[in-house]
Design a protein around this nucleic acid. Structure first.
Lengths: 150, 150
DNA sequence: TTTGTTGCAAAACGTTTGCAGCCTC
DNA sequence: GAGGCTGCAAACGTTTTGCAACAAA
């Protein structure tokens, strides 16, 4: 599941993306990219904002703006598991995201499955070019299933 | 894609669910169920609240509470396509929801695919019982793809 | 020099909560 | 009668906005 490229590659990809889109190179954007890539699991806008406070002066507005750009660049993906806030994870070029969510305790587990990926990749939509996808399975873990029966 | 049961069946299923969970039968809950099942596409909490105002006195709190119960009962499914609000659709016993979303214009299209469904149903997670799932494919429709290149 | 980007603070938005009173069971 | 459920309005937390100042190109 871990095939992370060296940070320099990520930074270069971001730089290329900014150039291509004619967006400006600002130190804030690179500071946020670096922070973002220091997380291994999910993170949200507030986490990035807070943890940058000690090292760099950035506003919330810029954090939100930059996370948007990083999503466009597909260097991160956003997930809306519940309605409380947007959560992100770095993804570089990863195209597929598979989750298992327990409706009882809300625990989120990532998984991967070659059969499923293959079935999805094979599908061809005319007039639509797929960039990435998310599959979310909802259900009940054993622990919650037991509790439900009581 | 339309295999909708008669409304009486839905109402009965709801009534059974309430009984099973020892939730009370209130007129508000049935009024909301009826309104919910009058929509063919997506709806949100505010839409239900507003359109009930003319016929019935219900509070927003009750609408939110009832939509939660209807989700538990799996008579509706909730979707978080963007971070603005929760959207619902009736679903009765439908287990799978497949969407195509254009990252340019945000248009959402539903589709179905037997191969993909089969690959997912076949998967067996020990210690986890799947109730339903959502597959969301992101990409670019032709129109937006063209605009992007300019 | 132009104008995209920033920080700041206020505002917006959907949703949740606390509480007194109501109505199922 | 007990307590789950209701309406109401205020509160909440995340995200967006407006604007003046700044700095990348």
């Amino acid at each position: 599941m871990k095939e992370e490229p060296p940070y320099e590659t990520v930074r270069q990809a971001f730089s290329d993306f900014l150039a291509e889109k004619k967006y400006r190179n600002t130190p804030e954007r690179y500071a946020i990219l670096e922070k973002v890539y220091s997380y291994d699991g999910f993170f949200d806008a507030e986490m990035i904002f807070e943890s940058l406070q000690n090292e760099y002066r950035v506003s919330r507005a810029t954090v939100y703006n930059t996370l948007e750009i990083l999503s466009e660049a597909r260097l991160i993906v956003s997930h809306l598991f519940d309605n409380t806030k947007v959560r992100y994870e770095k993804c570089f070029t990863k195209k597929s995201h598979h989750f298992l969510i327990c409706s009882g305790c809300g625990k989120i587990k990532e998984f991967s499955d070659k059969q499923i990926s293959a079935a999805i990749q094979v599908k061809n939509f005319k007039g639509f070019e797929i960039s990435h996808y998310t599959l979310t399975l909802y259900g009940w873990c054993n622990k919650c299933k037991r509790m439900m029966k009581k």
